[in-house]
């Protein structure tokens, strides 16, 4: 079976795309999907290489005073070793599939912009080597704000139960694999509770409530977007708080500002909270790779106690995701 949870994610997202195009009557152009994938992968590769060169340069500068020539040689070899960059393509593909599923555009150029911003954000908006915006999310928000021809169709999945089951099943598998079910549960639980209170207060019948919750888009968001283990808070308690805050903001934006794309704005606005929560509640950062126990321990220690001195290898890993 597939080892990396991201492989499942790629598989499932591709499946949703195929299903969406085949059965959901989307105005989705296949060429835009290719453009999204190409842009994300290219941006990932360029940015990761750049980052690598810069880091090696810095290290060289630092090491010049040293007499340990061995390290220089190693880094020099690594510069040409693109396998260090390779693993991140999985994340880039996930981002591009996410964009293809959610974002609708009139022109290719807008998709290129979304993809480029999505991936670059991982390298630009980061603190202690951890990016805090969900790449696909920031890509969507950026083109919604910056261009005239982008939109999101919240109703595109409808509320067919078998889609919901499919999302719940596949999404559940992934969040279980990456151990982030807490985030999904906290988000859905808090949102459902808020909507229930509102529904009760307004006096709507309960089918209105279920109709609001049974939206395929909402479930997809809860299972596939806010569970990205690399950009969300590390500690469980902070994930609870973080997801509940997003649910609350979504609820407010949807019901009081009538924004159909409330979830994306809420996630975008609150993503930086990750940094705050991570500094309050420390926990090891998630890594996609399945590593040996001893290495994981080191990694944990480095990140939790002295993130700055984390080994070079870990820093390379953090490009992933």
């Amino acid at each position: 079976m597939l080892k990396d949870a991201r492989d499942y994610q790629i598989l499932f997202l591709s499946l949703f795309l195929v299903l969406g195009i085949g059965t959901r009557d989307w105005t989705l152009h296949p060429e835009f999907i290719l453009v999204a994938i190409a842009t994300c992968c290219l941006t990932q590769w360029v940015a990761a290489s750049l980052k690598y060169f810069i880091e090696v340069d810095n290290k060289d500068a630092r090491d010049n005073g040293n007499t340990e020539g061995l390290i220089d040689t190693k880094n020099l070899a690594d510069v040409f070793n693109f396998s260090l960059v390779k693993p991140a393509f999985r994340s880039a593909i996930i981002t591009s599939l996410g964009l293809s599923l959610l974002l609708r555009v009139d022109h290719c150029s807008t998709m290129v912009l979304a993809g480029a911003i999505a991936i670059s954000s991982k390298f630009i908006f980061k603190i202690k080597d951890k990016h805090f915006f969900n790449p696909a999310n920031i890509g969507i928000i950026a083109v919604l704000v910056l261009t005239q021809d982008a939109w999101v169709s919240p109703g595109q999945w409808g509320e067919d139960w078998w889609y919901l089951l499919l999302f719940a099943g596949t999404g559940g598998l992934i969040v279980k694999k990456v151990g982030r079910w807490d985030t999904t549960a906290a988000f859905l639980g808090a949102y459902a509770l808020l909507e229930a209170i509102r529904n009760f207060w307004l006096g709507w019948t309960w089918d209105v409530y279920w109709h609001r919750l049974m939206s395929g888009s909402l479930l997809l968001f809860a299972l596939f977007m806010i569970t990205d283990p690399r950009s969300i808070p590390n500690a469980r308690i902070s994930r609870y708080l973080w997801a509940i805050s997003i649910a609350l903001l979504t609820f407010i934006l949807r019901n009081y500002f009538f924004i159909p794309t409330a979830v994306f704005w809420a996630l975008f606005a609150l993503a930086p909270l990750t940094i705050v929560f991570d500094s309050i509640w420390q926990a090891p950062r998630f890594s996609w790779q399945e590593t040996s126990p001893s290495f994981t321990e080191n990694l944990t220690l480095d990140l939790a106690i002295a993130p700055k001195s984390a080994p070079q290898m870990e820093r390379e890993k953090s490009q992933v995701g």
């Binding site: 139960w161 719940a168 969040v175 549960a185 859905l188 279920w210 919750l213 479930l219």
Partner: peptide, 15 residues
């Protein structure tokens, strides 16, 4: 997780 899943399932059946 199982709880969440069964909640979703319950919701669907209810609807």
């Amino acid at each position: 997780f199982r709880l969440l899943f069964s909640l979703i399932l319950a919701a669907i059946i209810f609807v």
